[in-house]
Structure formats: C-alpha cells, structure tokens
C-alpha cells in the first residue's frame, strides 16, 4: 500500500451528495483483470459526452482543476457497490485524498487499503471550503495525517478524526495481510478451539 504522510495539492469541488461508485467508475470498465488502467474511466459518464469528447460542463474538465489532487465532495461519498475499482480510479487519476462530510463504509475501508485518504469534516466546513475553491483559482489544501489536520490557504486549520490503527497503517504503508499473518499462532489456536 502507498504510504500517506502529508500532502499539499490543488483541491477540486464535486458539490453533490450521495456520489455512488457506479458514478465513480461505471460497470463497463470493471472487466479488467489488472489493478491498473482505470484513470481514463473515472466519472466516465459525467466526464465525457456521447461523442467521447470531454464534457466542458463537468467540473474536473475545467482547466483550473487539471492538476487537482484533493477532491472535496458532499455527504455519503462512495455509496453503493463495493467495487474497489472506485478508489483505484480516483488514485490513478491523481487524487491523494478525498474530503467529504461523510463516506460510505465499504468505500472508506477500500480507500484506506490503497493509501487514498478519506478525510471527514463537518458539513458546514466542507460547504465553506467548496465555496472558497470555486472563488479562488489555484486553491490548495494541506492534509497532514500525523497531526490529523487540514489547512486552508489562509492558514485556517481543521482537525479530523481517524482510527489509530488506520492512521498507523497509512503512515507506514503497511501490508495488512503481512500484519495479520504475524498472528498465525492466534488464528491456529482459534481454529483448533472451534475444531476447524
């Protein structure tokens, strides 16, 4: 897994609630057997017109967000299907972190497993950040996992919560399977207790 410590980057707004994983990556792109190559399909039905040309109306197609690496979105981001292709596509497109007022559970878990940081901030703060991003070209946020803070360009700081275990996994880019396998003896003891 990719480690995440601290990141400063251009923020892009996606001012919608309940963005589901069918939108993040539509099903016709799930047929691969690799973990890579999903960046071109991110938000496909929103990003591209029927002709295949980019839809100028879609926010991520605006020139000012071309190098965005932090996505700021509304509540319940990532709801729906469990497809891990969603965080893969976001990450491969260039996002390092998603800021939202809430996340769907499976998406949130899948993001952690790939080093894509989901940051939860209160809804009014997210709405205010989105308004600032829209008002100011080149608006960048700094996300520091160690201190669990998001910093706005004007220096305003917002603390966010994260489980200690998930934080350590991300800071160290931990291999979770390797971590669990250290407890082989516990797993075996559990199995023999159950007669497995």
């Amino acid at each position: 897994m990719e480690a995440f410590k601290k990141h400063t980057g251009i923020a892009a707004p996606l001012n919608r609630i309940n963005v589901d994983t069918d939108q993040i990556i539509p099903k016709q792109f799930l047929k691969g057997i690799e973990r890579t190559g999903f960046e071109n399909y991110l938000f496909y039905d929103w990003r591209f017109l029927d002709s295949g040309a980019p839809d100028p109306e879609f926010v991520l197609n605006a020139p000012r967000y071309q190098s965005a690496s932090i996505l700021v979105a509304g509540a319940n981001f990532g709801c729906g299907s469990s497809r891990e292709h969603a965080p893969w596509a976001l990450q491969q497109y260039g996002f390092k972190a998603i800021v939202a007022s809430s996340f769907a559970d499976i998406f949130r878990g899948n993001s952690f497993k790939n080093g894509l940081l989901p940051v939860t901030l209160p809804a009014d703060i997210v709405a205010d950040i989105i308004a600032q991003i829209e008002a100011q070209e080149g608006y960048a946020l700094t996300i520091d996992l160690e201190s669990q803070t998001v910093t706005r360009p004007n220096g305003t700081l917002h603390a966010f919560d994260i489980g200690e275990f998930q934080k350590q996994c991300l800071l160290n880019g931990l291999d979770e399977i390797g971590w669990t396998l250290q407890f082989e003896a516990d797993i075996s003891a559990y199995e023999s207790r159950r007669g497995i």
Partner: peptide, 16 residues
C-alpha cells in the same frame, strides 16, 4: 468487502 479484503480473507481466513 473490497478486492484487497478478498485477498486478505483468502490468505488469512480473517478480516481486519
């Protein structure tokens, strides 16, 4: 679960 967790369960029969 997601695909990383599928791999985790296959390898360990456990989930974090």
């Amino acid at each position: 679960i997601g695909t990383s967790e599928v791999e985790h369960v296959l390898a360990t029969q456990c989930l974090l």
